[in-house]
Design a protein around this nucleic acid. Structure first.
Ligand SMILES: NC(=O)c1ccc[n+]([C@@H]2O[C@H](COP(=O)([O-])OP(=O)(O)OC[C@H]3O[C@@H](n4cnc5c(N)ncnc54)[C@H](O)[C@@H]3O)[C@@H](O)[C@H]2O)c1
Ligand SMILES: NC(=O)c1ccc[n+]([C@@H]2O[C@H](COP(=O)([O-])OP(=O)(O)OC[C@H]3O[C@@H](n4cnc5c(N)ncnc54)[C@H](O)[C@@H]3O)[C@@H](O)[C@H]2O)c1
Lengths: 249, 249
DNA sequence: CGCATTTTGTTCTCACGTTCACAAACTCCT
DNA sequence: AGGAGTTTGTGAACGTGAGAACAAAATGCG
C-alpha cells in the first residue's frame, strides 16, 4: 500500500509484507496515546464500537486526521461500520509498546519526585517504578509510595538488575546533565526530563522534556495578545488559538 | 520587512510601522522561553555577549533556526558581533509577556498540586500563585507553601479580586471538564491541564496539556523500535531520533 | 439482487516549519 | 582607508503535517 522502502545505496532488501514500511510520523506517534486513552474511556462506558467521528471527538481531534493516523498502523476498521473498540485499543497498545511492562527509575525525590512516585497513572499504563533514587542521605531509607528511596550510586546495580531502559529526572536543573550522563553511561536510552535544563545526549538516546514554566510562558504570550486590543488581538484571534499542542514537543 | 498583512475581504487597515505584521509562528513561540532560559544561564555566568551559535548550543537548537526565530521579533543583534545578552533577554521577555506579573490559581491540591504550589520556578519566571483551591473539605484551611487552601467555590471571588487569567488544573481526570467549565465561566482564558483528559473550551480560550503518561508512551514506542533489531531498528535509527519535541507540541 | 446509506482509507493540495546558503553589515587589523 | 574576517538576517528549497474531498467497501432495505 505505502510501497517499499527505498534505499539510496545499492543494497536492496526484501521485506515480508507484514512489517511493510512502518514509518509512523512523529506527530502521529504523539497522538496515539491520546487515542488509546479515549478508547479506554469509551470501553469503560460500555461502548463496543465507534466511528472515526466518535473517537475523534473523544480525543479532541479532527476525524480526517484520526483516520489518517490510524491508517499508518494498518486497516483495523470496517467501512460502513467503524472500529471495534477493544480490538483497536489492543492494536494501538501493541504499536506503542505498552502491552509489555516498562521498568522505570525516578531520580530526585523532592516535591515533584514524591508526586511522581505516588502517581497511579504510571502503573495503569504499563510503566512500573522499580526504584527511587536521591543524592540526599537524609532522604535515603525513607519509603515513598511503598518504595524505599535508595542512594543515587545504586543506579548501576538497579538498572542492570531490572533491565531498565527509561529514566526520569526530577532533580534541580544544575544536576540534570550529570544525572543524564550517568543514566546514559549505564545503558538507559530514554529519558524524561522535568528539570528546566537542556540535557545533551549521544545519538540513539531519546530525551523528552516536560517544562511547566515553558507551558505557562506560552499561555502568557497568547494572553498578552488577547489583552492588547486592536490589530494584534485580531491577528491572534484569527489564527484559531485552540492549542493543546505541546508535545512537546 | 515582512510586508503588510493581507486582508481577504475589502477592508484595508493601515498600521503603524512599529507593530508591523507581528505574526510569530507557534513553533517559534514555543521556543522563545527556551532561549530566555538559556540567556539567563549565560547572564548568570557573567557572559554579556553571545553569537547565535553560542545561544543555539545553550538552547539545544540549530543556529539557523535560532536566528530565524529571533528575526520574527526584530533585529536585535549586531552583524559580526552577536547579541547583547541582557538586551535580548529583555526583548524576548517583553515579547512573551513575562515582564509583567501573571496571577495564577491552582485547582486540585493533591500530590501534584502540592508539588506545584512548592515550585519556586513559578515565581521566578513572572507567575504568582494567588490561590490554591480544592473541593475536599479536609484539605481546606491547611496551608501549603504559605498559601491557605480554599474551597473550590471561592474561585469566582478570587478570580475577580486578582484579575486572574491563567488557571492550572491538577484534579483527577473526571473532574477536569467541570473545573475547566467553571474557570471559563468566570473569565479565565488560559488553562494548563495536568489531568489526563481532553477538555473542551470555547473559541478564544487556550488550553495546554501536560501529560506524563503520553510522554512515557512516546518514549516506549521509540524504545520498542530500538529493541526490535533488524530492519525496523535501522529505520528508527535513520530518522535521527533526538526528539525533545513536545509541544507542542 | 440492486440501490441508498454509511463510514473507512487514501489521494491531493495547501500551509507550516526546518535547513541551507549567502548577501549585508559590522569589527579589527594593517 | 581598505581588506580580511565574523556573524546576522533572510530568501529559497525542501520536508512534514493538516484538512478537504472522494473512491472503495461494507451494511441494510425493498
Ligand atoms: N515542583 C514542581 O512542581 C516542579 C514543576 C516543574 C518542574 N520542576 C522541576 O523539577 C525538578 C525537581 O523539582 P522539585 O520541586 O521536586 O525540587 P526539590 O528540590 O524538592 O527536589 C530535588 C531533589 O533532587 C535531589 N537531588 C539533587 N541533586 C541530585 C543528584 N545529583 N542526584 C540525585 N538526586 C539529586 C535532591 O536531594 C532533592 O531531593 C526541578 O528541576 C524543578 O525545576 C518542579
Ligand atoms: N501525581 C503525579 O505525579 C501526576 C503526574 C501526571 C499527571 N497527574 C494527574 O494530575 C492530576 C492530579 O494528580 P494527583 O496525584 O495530585 O491526584 P490526587 O488525587 O492526589 O489529588 C487530586 C486533588 O483534586 C481534588 N479534587 C477532586 N475533584 C475536585 C474538584 N471537582 N474540584 C476541585 N478539586 C478537586 C481532590 O480533593 C484532591 O485533593 C490527576 O489527574 C493525575 O492523573 C498526576
Amino acid at each position: 500500500m505505502i510501497g517499499w522502502v527505498r534505499l539510496e545505496s545499492g543494497a536492496v532488501t526484501t521485506r515480508s509484507s507484514t512489517d511493510a514500511a512502518r514509518v509512523i510520523p512523529e506527530a502521529t506517534v504523539a497522538r496515539l496515546p491520546v487515542y488509546l486513552r479515549a478508547l479506554t474511556a469509551l470501553a469503560d462506558n460500555g461502548i463496543r464500537t465507534c466511528s472515526s467521528e466518535d473517537l475523534a471527538t473523544a480525543a479532541g481531534v479532527n476525524s480526517a486526521k484520526l483516520r489518517k493516523d490510524l491508517s499508518y498502523l494498518g486497516s483495523y476498521g470496517t467501512r460502513g461500520v467503524g472500529y471495534d473498540v477493544d480490538y483497536l485499543r489492543y492494536q494501538i497498545a501493541r504499536e506503542i509498546g505498552v502491552t509489555q511492562d516498562w521498568p522505570v527509575v525516578i531520580v530526585g525525590i523532592g516535591n515533584l519526585g514524591h508526586a511522581l512516585a505516588n502517581y497511579s497513572g504510571f502503573r495503569s499504563r504499563g510503566f512500573r517504578v522499580v526504584a527511587l533514587l536521591d543524592a540526599d542521605p537524609a532522604l535515603v531509607g525513607r519509603t515513598v509510595a511503598d518504595i524505599a528511596v535508595r542512594p543515587f550510586d545504586d543506579l548501576d546495580e538497579i538498572v542492570r538488575e531490572h533491565d531498565v531502559a527509561i529514566g526520569v529526572i526530577a532533580t534541580p536543573a544544575h544536576a540534570a546533565q550529570d544525572v543524564a550522563d550517568r543514566m546514559v553511561g549505564i545503558g538507559i536510552t530514554s529519558i524524561l526530563n522535568f528539570a528546566p535544563a537542556v540535557v545533551a545526549v549521544p545519538e540513539g538516546v531519546d530525551v523528552r522534556k516536560v517544562d511547566l514554566s515553558i507551558e505557562l510562558q506560552i499561555l502568557a504570550y497568547h494572553e498578552q495578545r488577547k489583552a492588547n486590543g486592536g490589530a494584534e488581538a485580531a491577528a491572534a484571534a484569527a489564527d484559531g488559538v485552540d492549542a493543546a499542542g505541546g508535545g512537546a514537543a
